[in-house]
Design a protein around this nucleic acid. Structure first.
Lengths: 214, 214
DNA sequence: TTCGCTATTGAACAGGTGATCAACGAGTGA
DNA sequence: TCACTCGTTGATCACCTGTTCAATAGCGAA
């Protein structure tokens, strides 16, 4: 690995500044190589300091990983949610949002998410952060959909369930894209996905179908 | 880690048998602790032999991981697909299938899948196997849906897209469950998911909506 | 300019990883 | 019973991991 970031940092920094520098380096590193790449030595090399200094500012690596995860995904969520355009209808907005999230250029964040689900199963500090960030994503989407319903009663879906399905679909597809398993026409699939979530009638159970045949 | 498997194996086995024994041990280990736990020494301890012997039969760990992955997910796919009941309608069958795949007792396989997406991005031997197994899943589902359509023209969906969406949803939800992020009523969500995929009308684009307002 | 605080370092520890190879010894055919 | 084949071992390599701590040295205050 080569130190692509700036040359060796100035000798001595105020703790607050050094702390920021280390966190930023770790965020960059995780973006390039995933959460698994967050080792004391790799972060130190990236920042241009000694491993011991990294360990000094973040004595427990396990929770540092959780912190870096939060930093990365929160920034992306803020960015994506902020790009919602209130002057355009819900469907168009959500379509843009899905296309944004599935874009190849965001594979770095996808990698962070996928690794977070695997690592979060055994790193409880991380697991908790993952749940928090997913809750935030869920309620953000739920809010958008609920607000759209309030303005246009033609939209007839359950915001909570729809948000849930959207997240599952997008996360599933993001995971798939990490090994380059993707449909030929991604834009078309995004549209179909959206149609499935927004235009689905109330769930029918096999039982209720049987009943309708009486 | 304790060697929960049988005691030390007989001194000397025919190569074929030893090979099977090592593979089986690795499969068990990955099921318990995930693909990341597949180290030469851990597999050796599980099987009750020397690390050197494992390295002898599988000289490159990277491809051994890919092999174990295939072993695990192919077995599950065969099992789940085989449980399809041709005497029952598509919706009921798919509902059972989804519920099966999302059941907590299958978190071990979910972990293997999620890790495979992350590891497969940088382990090309694994990545290729992952794509193959996903293709097999996709065409299996596609076949089931297509066959159901042939028997009941009331079902009006595109088998390919539906299979794709189902896989994305199920994989997304499986990933989420690893950190115990799950909806209150999983059965209800499974039904809604199915409704979304099977009852979605043809995809409408924002453009086509705009056109319909002329 | 000097002094003291403390940010930073180097070195070490105990443990883990995949991989390699000469040597051992169990089983088998002669 | 002997000898040979080859499955199996123990030891070792180079490298990685997180964590600890005494010692160093930069910087601001006096």
């Amino acid at each position: 690995m080569e130190t692509t970031s700036r040359a060796a940092a100035p000798r001595r920094l105020p703790p607050e500044e050094r702390e920021r520098s280390i966190l930023r380096g770790a965020v960059d590193l995780a973006g390039e190589s995933g959460l698994e790449a967050l080792t004391v030595r790799a972060v130190a090399a990236k920042v241009g300091v000694t491993p011991a200094l990294v360990a000094h500012y973040r004595p427990v690596m396990e929770s540092f990983v959780a912190e870096v995860f939060t930093e990365i995904v929160a920034a992306e969520r803020d960015e994506v949610i902020a790009s919602y355009d209130p002057d355009v209808d819900l469907r168009t907005n959500l379509l843009r949002l899905i296309e944004t999230l599935l874009d190849d250029s965001r594979d770095d964040v996808a990698m962070v998410w996928v690794q977070s689900w695997a690592l979060g199963a055994r790193n409880e500090a991380l697991g908790e952060r993952v749940r928090v960030e997913m809750d935030l994503w869920h309620s953000a989407l739920e809010d958008l959909i609920a607000r759209a319903i309030a303005e246009d009663p033609m939209v007839r879906v359950d915001p909570g369930s729809s948000a849930w399905m959207l997240l599952a679909m997008v996360d599933g597809m993001s995971a798939h894209s990490l090994v380059h398993w993707a449909p030929r026409d991604r834009a078309d699939l995004a549209r179909r996905t959206l149609a499935a979530v927004l235009d689905a009638p109330a769930a029918r159970t096999p039982t209720s179908i049987a009943e309708s045949h009486r």
